[in-house]
Amino acid sequence: MKASFLVKLFVALAVLLGSSTYASADTIGAISFTGANSYNSTSFTFVGNPTVLAATTTGSFTIFDSAAAVTANSFTFSPIFTPFQIFSITEGSNTLTIFFDSLDTIVNTPGALALTGLATIDLNGVITDGTFSLSSQFGDKTPVVSFSATALAPTPEPSTLFLLGTGLVGSAGAFFRRRRTLTA
């Protein structure tokens, strides 16, 4: 009887601890800009500041429309990438600042550039770690730069999981001790 209960307890602990490590990412939203830019195999240059395409804002970015003031910073992505602030967008009391922290993927083909990586997103003082995707196409005379961000779900700390596990084991021990004194 004792052994089967202990097995059930450890299985429950394993399921609880194992399921807590599966974290999902939440989409913050997407925002697109139109404006002049140029790029080559090492750098991306904004010509002037882009304009928000209001019809393409989703999620938390819907507070920005075509009246938003966008400041964009040109950057070099090869051979060495240095983290930097790429966008700052202000409309009324809302401010969005996006920092590119690292590049994971660079796809540079004739007529198209795509960059993905990790970003820090500051929306009205709320800072979120996330991923970004930036692309530019030269299919027509009006290049479009689109940007989307996804928040990274927080990963549970090992020390928190350890405390939870030791608390559950301690509770099980107290339960067994109490049960043993009641049956004796």
Rank of each mutant, 00 (worst) to 15 (best):
G29L: 05
T62C: 01
P79S: 04
V70D: 01
L113D: 05
I63Y: 10
T82N: 15
T27P: 07
L17N: 10
V15G: 11
T45D: 04
G29D: 02
S38T: 15
S20T: 12
I106V: 15
I31E: 01
F99Y: 15
G29M: 02
T57G: 03
T45V: 05
N40K: 10
T57Q: 09
F46R: 01
P110D: 05
P83Q: 10
Q85W: 06
V70A: 05
T90K: 10
F99T: 15
F33P: 00
T27C: 04
I89Q: 02
S60M: 08
S24F: 13
N108R: 14
T57K: 05
A68T: 02
I31W: 03
I98W: 04
F87C: 00
Y22H: 12
A67L: 14
F46V: 04
I98K: 11
L17S: 03
T62Q: 03
S66I: 00
S43I: 04
I86T: 13
T42C: 05
T90C: 14
L53S: 03
V107G: 04
T27W: 12
F81Q: 06
T51Y: 07
L115Q: 07
N73D: 09
T51P: 02
T82D: 06
F44S: 03
L115E: 01
A67T: 15
L16Y: 11
A112D: 08
I89M: 08
F99R: 14
A72S: 15
T57F: 01
A55N: 06
T34C: 05
A112N: 13
T95P: 04
S88C: 08
F46W: 09
G59S: 08
Y22W: 13
S38A: 13
N49H: 10
L115M: 12
A36C: 05
T51C: 00
T58F: 04
T97V: 14
A114I: 11
L16H: 06
T45G: 06
T97N: 15
F46A: 01
V107L: 14
L115K: 05
T109C: 02
I31R: 00
D65M: 02
A36M: 12
S93K: 10
I31Q: 00
N49Q: 10
G92D: 12
D65T: 07
L103E: 07
F64G: 10
S24G: 13
G35F: 02
T116H: 00
F100D: 10
L17I: 12
T45C: 00
P50M: 02
F75D: 07
T105Y: 14
S38H: 10
A68Q: 01
A23I: 14
G111W: 01
T51I: 09
G35V: 04
T45S: 12
I86V: 12
I86D: 12
A72C: 11
L103G: 10
T62Y: 01
S78A: 14
P83T: 12
